[in-house]
Design a binder for these strands. Structure first.
Length: 302
DNA sequence: TCCTTACCCGGCTTAGAACG
DNA sequence: CGTTCTAAGCCGGGTAAGGA
């Protein structure tokens, strides 16, 4: 016995995935080429192993328990990894790869990075899929568990086991309505302190650093609205007389709609470095290296 | 070293109970 | 009524043990 504690048999992983997908023991058995009782017996072993019913009979079929819901992603990733063992050669070929790249990023990056990144991926890896995942406090763990291939953002708290590469320096700009009643083409410090602001509240986001920087310069801003995301910002700014401090790229992109205008901040705000992060386990992995190179190349010419 | 035997294990079929 | 679970018994392959 090589590893008595190795949690599970590959066949049982396949079974788990198939029952989860088909919501049926019988259909899973048919698809796996097994007799139905065999599936039932394996399921019993899985239930003992995980100390959970995993699937329960209902009028809608064999529905997964919360435990099964929690396991399915890990199971699928394990199976994906095992299937890759059979791919010809170990080297990575973007032109033929059929997999999902999971990239954690802020919603601001959905505007500033994702379109260009997606265009490159679609061109070079037409069979691959991309999943954008919110970048949160648990990002280091998710990188380690291979739930996320790459994390892009301002995440100074990542360290052990996580590699990083600087992508670009991000500075800030102010966004106001294109029809603002008092602010023209320049934003003065008096305007900045006198007008009301929208604050973006995202744990770990770049924007959380801003109030620290303003406080150091003894500049106050009157935040009357806090939102969790940049995505609805344009409509909010356009329909109000509020000021929003946003990453320069986001501001310029949103201002192109004509609803809002991007103005230089009257206060010096420190630029922050946006980096990409990956786990040490995948440092030599062909697919991960390729993905990192694509992301880095997006910013080389700037 | 080779062969036989016994045993274990995984998977099968069948049958019946339990359940929604 | 259809689906799922469980038990009993069978079969084939692998393996360990023992004998020639």
């Amino acid at each position: 016995m090589i590893e008595p504690n190795l949690p599970i048999d590959t066949k049982q992983l396949l079974l788990f995935e198939e029952v989860y997908r088909t919501r049926s023991v019988s259909r899973a058995a048919e698809r796996l080429g097994l007799a139905q009782p065999t599936v039932s017996i394996w399921l019993r072993e899985l239930r003992r192993r995980f100390d959970d019913a995993l699937f329960v009979r209902t009028a809608q079929g064999m529905l997964p328990t919360p435990k099964a819901d929690a396991l399915i992603d890990i199971v699928r990733q394990a199976l994906d990894s095992l299937r890759r063992l059979d791919e010809p050669g170990v080297q990575f070929d973007p032109a033929t790869v059929r997999r999902t790249f999971r990239i954690a990023m802020t919603d601001a990056s959905h505007i500033s990075i994702l379109p260009r990144l997606l265009a490159r991926l679609r061109r070079e890896a037409p069979l691959a899929q991309v999943e954008a995942i919110p970048i949160g406090r648990d990002i280091a763990q998710r990188l380690e568990m291979a739930e996320v291939d790459l994390a892009i953002g301002y995440t100074p708290e990542l360290n052990t086991g996580i590699y990083q590469q600087a992508l670009y320096s991000q500075d800030f700009i102010c966004l106001v309505s294109a029809r603002h009643p008092r602010i023209g083409e320049r934003l003065s410090l008096a305007d900045f302190e006198g007008e009301a602001h929208i604050g973006i509240v995202q744990p770990g986001s770049i924007i959380a650093e801003l109030d620290n920087a303003l406080a150091r310069q003894d500049v106050r801003r009157n935040v009357v609205l806090r939102v969790p995301s940049c995505l609805g910002l344009n409509a909010l700014v356009a329909a109000s007389d509020l000021i929003a401090i946003v990453p320069r790229q986001i501001g310029q992109t949103l201002a192109r709609s004509g609803l809002s205008k991007a103005l230089e901040c009257p206060v010096a705000l420190p630029a922050v470095m946006v980096r990409q992060h990956w786990h040490a386990r995948f440092h030599e992995d062909g697919a991960n290296r390729w993905l990192r190179r694509i992301a880095a190349q997006l910013f080389e010419k700037e």
